[in-house]
Design a protein around this nucleic acid. Structure first.
Length: 492
RNA sequence: GGCGCGUUCGUCUAGUGGCUUAGGACGCCGCCCUCUCAAGGCGGAGAUCACGGGUUCGAAUCCCGUACGCGCUACCA
């Protein structure tokens, strides 16, 4: 006898892109499966024909793969529970709907949308829960048969038995009770023959051997319907775990308008998958100790549903940015090189020929100063092109009356260097300062300005070495020509 | 309106009756390091634990109520 290893599923509907909340749900399912040595299945819930979107599935698959979430079974992978598209499982749902009808647990209904609408409005006016009034149950068998023969459109509805209490035992929230008097006779099969989510997800979860249903909290309210379905069909229920929602800064459910919600948006903005995964994992889950930086493997090792908490979490971009920088810094330089080259090929400097060794020097120098890969370019354009203008504030602060003379001297000393390394530049600068009997700062800041055009960045000796002797001299000469001393800088 | 869920620093969170003068992280501020900016190190401000009642010798932690927020309330998922 062996303990049944868990089987979980991620069951998105193909809406065209992967929502960040969907990524979180997928991730928690994935981490749970990995942690428990179980299997994770991808199932496409495409039962809404009105919302069919071309290429949505391909997109979903691509994004999930980018994120590093891999499935044991699903579209393109296959598995013992094929097919994994609900739209290809229509006969199965029909079969179980028939079984429910035969058991008296479901029934045909022929109501017009207009009548349903009216009913709803009436109930709302009376401050009642809006739900179907079981009118179709008053029809005689003959009437039903006649209507069917006439080809009237119909739906199949769940026949909820009144005056019962349904207890949903949720792993995260504990026992949640519902009164069946306010559980609606949910449509199971729509008039187009497609099942609704409620029927399809229960049937598939059972047939696919799903042991744990891990999904967003928005499903908690309809779980009693699912529980009823399991009971009416005589099936064992899975364990339910409803995840807290991801929220906008104003605490409403995370949505467009208030920021990016598609995983692809974050891909495009240059976020690392490692950072996004790490960040999203920490939204609603914590390891119980003080670790914040995680790799996917570490997450899988430590993950447990018991440590998922109940309240919704605001998506806090600042922390994501910090994690992105952390993950970026944790990467080896040769990996960053590949990423930088890719970024470069899409940039203004795409036609520039740059040696790997040169780029590696930039990476080394800029690594602690960037949060995103593209900042290896945008925060230090002076490594790719000569500065054309010089920061006025820096000129005002650092470029004094005697600066040109001092810089010229430094330039001359540098010119004498033969194949200099970083230390040679440092020695040259120290020597110049001594000869001039001035502090090194008098030279350092103007040189930086001349080389980079700005007042911040890596150490000047690094700058000199990376940019190189000849180009450095050229830039100093150019700065000497262009920068004029503002009146306020003239001493006395 | 009905039903359900939730509520600890601005944000993510620790906390499961005494270990808590409520801990950590992001962000913010300061100091150190230092040629600048970062990174790093150190420190600081920041939460009457939504509110009101209980229970208890003792409650952020248990119970009840209220408020607020959110979700669901479709032949969407």
């Amino acid at each position: 006898m062996s303990i049944i290893s868990p089987r979980v599923r991620f069951a998105p509907s193909p809406t065209g892109y992967l929502h960040i909340g969907g990524l979180r749900t997928a991730l928690f399912n994935y981490l749970f499966a990995k942690n428990q040595n179980g299997k994770i299945i991808l199932r496409i819930e495409d039962t809404d024909r009105k919302r069919f979107i071309e290429d949505a599935v391909a997109n979903l698959l691509k994004t999930l793969e980018w994120a590093g979430i891999y499935f044991d079974e699903g579209p393109e992978i296959g598995g013992e529970s094929e097919p994994y598209f609900q739209s290809q499982r229509l006969e199965i749902y029909k079969m179980y709907a028939d079984e429910l009808i035969n058991k008296g647990k479901a029934y045909y209904a022929f109501d017009t949308p207009e009548r349903l609408q009216q009913l709803r409005e009436q109930q709302q006016k009376l401050n009642q829960q809006t739900m179907y009034d079981k009118f179709a149950l008053t029809l005689s068998e003959d009437e039903v048969e006649r209507k069917m023969e006439n080809g009237e459109t119909y739906v199949v509805r769940l026949n909820v038995q009144p005056n019962e209490t349904i207890v949903v035992d949720d792993l995260i929230r504990g026992k949640v009770e519902f009164d069946t008097n306010i559980v609606d006779d949910q449509v199971l099969i729509k008039s187009d023959g497609f099942p609704t989510y409620h029927l399809a997800n229960v049937v598939d979860d059972h047939l696919m051997g799903i042991t744990h249903v891990i999904r967003g909290e928005e499903w908690l309210s309809s779980t009693p319907k699912h529980v009823l379905l399991y009971e009416y069909l005589g099936w064992e229920k899975p364990v339910f775990a409803h995840l807290p929602l991801l929220l906008n800064p104003d605490k409403s459910k995370l949505s467009k308008r208030q920021g990016d919600v598609a995983v692809e948006d974050y891909m495009k903005k240059g976020y690392l998958k490692e950072a996004l995964i790490n960040f999203v994992a920490l939204l609603g889950w914590n390891p119980g100790d003080e670790q914040e930086f995680f790799t996917m493997g570490e997450l899988a090792n430590k993950f447990s549903l018991e440590r998922v908490h109940k309240a919704g979490a605001v998506f806090n971009i600042e922390k994501l940015n910090w994690l992105n920088a952390e993950h970026l810094r944790s990467k080896p330089n040769d990996e960053l090189l590949l990423m930088l080259k890719d970024e470069l090929s899409k940039s203004y400097y795409k036609d520039k020929v740059l040696a790997d060794d040169y780029l590696l020097l930039i990476i080394e120098a800029m690594k602690p100063r960037v949060s995103f890969v593209n900042e290896f370019i945008t925060k230090c354009t002076y490594f790719y092109t000569e500065p054309t203008e010089y920061d006025e504030h820096v000129i005002k602060k650092r470029w004094k009356e005697d600066t040109p003379e001092q810089l010229t001297k430094l330039r001359d000393n540098i010119a004498q260097l033969d194949n200099p390394v970083k230390e040679d530049f440092e020695n040259a600068l120290t020597k110049t300062a001594e000869e001039l009997e001035i502090g090194k700062g008098k030279l350092i800041h103007p040189v930086r300005l001349a080389l980079s055009g700005i007042g911040t960045g890596p150490g000047v000796y690094d700058l000199l070495f990376i940019i190189g002797k000849d180009k450095s001299i050229g830039r100093i000469d150019r700065a000497l020509k262009i920068i004029t001393i503002p009146k306020t800088n003239v001493s006395e």
